[in-house]
Simulated assay, not measured.
Amino acid sequence: MYDYLLGGTDNYKVDREACAELLRMAPSTRELALVNRAFLVRAVRYLAQERGVRRFLDHGSGLPTSPNVHEVTQAVDPSCEVVYIDNDPVVAAHGRMGLAEDPSTTAVLEMDMRETDKIFESPRVKHLLRDDQPVAALFISVLHCIRNDDDPWDLVRRVAARLPAGSYMVVSQLASDDPDLRNEITEFMDTVTGGNWGEVRSLDEVNRFFARLELLEVKEQKPVEVSLWHPDSDLAPRQRSKEWIEYGGVALVKPAAESSA
């Protein structure tokens, strides 16, 4: 569905039909997908260019729609390393085909992003962490695929705790302060994905993901609608409708002692 909304070709009739219904309920959905993709590109370029990050761990990466994380970061420095995590075998197969040119710097692991211990014990992620250089962990428009009962906030905390000092987190998720819209879209997406869906959350619920992190490039210490985060220019894509938004930010992982204070 996301690929279709972005104008990609890796989608099926059932995806297009589901998107048509979703656009009926929330007409700004395609706009939202586009601004979220632009946020992904800006965030990873910022971390590579401005913060010197050379290693990226992308949770729930989805189909490799261009420009993807490795393309953006390796345009800054070809030595940048990216590991994509996704539990969908179709995503993994597409990703591996597309990354065959340079497997030494980019990999796709077919794993459930909730299995933090398994991910961090995998040889490829161990290699990413081999000498305690900063790593950027990405959760871009994916935490809404996890139910509250599975505690996505704990997932973010667990990953942050496993990262080297000076690492970063990038988080965005679908959010709305309209409870009726949240419930309607959550129920619809749960149905069309066969139960592989979580929750559209309130802004306060998304704020909790950043409780122990230091937000960057924002005037206040709180997330923002992502088209407002560090825009490239006045012509950068903006989300106009506010029925639901992609809400998030880029944050520095605080040292354990400081984050527990």
Rank of each mutant, 00 (worst) to 15 (best):
R45Q: 14
A92Q: 07
S227I: 01
E115L: 09
D190L: 09
S104P: 02
C145W: 06
G249K: 01
F209H: 06
A100V: 14
M169T: 02
T116W: 00
V170C: 05
P223N: 07
L213N: 00
V76Q: 03
L57R: 02
D177E: 07
S104D: 12
R51T: 14
P78E: 05
E220W: 12
G8R: 03
G194Q: 04
T193H: 03
D88P: 08
D132Q: 06
V35K: 08
T29W: 09
A261L: 13
D112K: 06
D117T: 02
E243Y: 13
R130L: 07
D154Q: 14
V69M: 04
Y84H: 07
L228E: 13
R158W: 02
L5I: 08
A33L: 07
V76H: 03
V156L: 01
G248I: 06
T9D: 13
D77M: 05
A92L: 11
E243S: 15
N68A: 08
T9A: 11
R45H: 14
V156G: 00
Y46A: 14
D117G: 10
V41N: 12
S167D: 04
T193E: 01
Q173C: 09
P123H: 01
G198D: 06
E187V: 09
F120P: 00
V142A: 05
E50Y: 13
D15C: 04
I140Q: 13
V76D: 05
K222W: 08
E17V: 01
L22G: 01
V108M: 15
K222R: 15
T116V: 15
Y4P: 02
N183M: 09
L63S: 05
A256E: 09
E17P: 08
N207H: 11
L128P: 07
E205R: 03
D234K: 14
A137P: 03
G62D: 04
E101D: 15
G8E: 03
G8M: 03
S176Q: 01
E205D: 08
A257F: 15
S233P: 01
D102F: 05
E217W: 13
P237N: 06
R16Q: 11
L6R: 06
M1S: 11
Q173D: 09
K118V: 06
V125D: 00
R54K: 11
M111G: 00
P164G: 03
E258Y: 10
M169E: 03
Y2E: 11
E187A: 14
A26G: 03
D58T: 06
L129N: 00
A251L: 02
R55L: 05
V226G: 08
Q239D: 11
R16A: 14
L109I: 01
L143Y: 07
S176P: 01
E71R: 11
P67E: 12
T73V: 10
A75K: 10
V135T: 02
E258S: 13
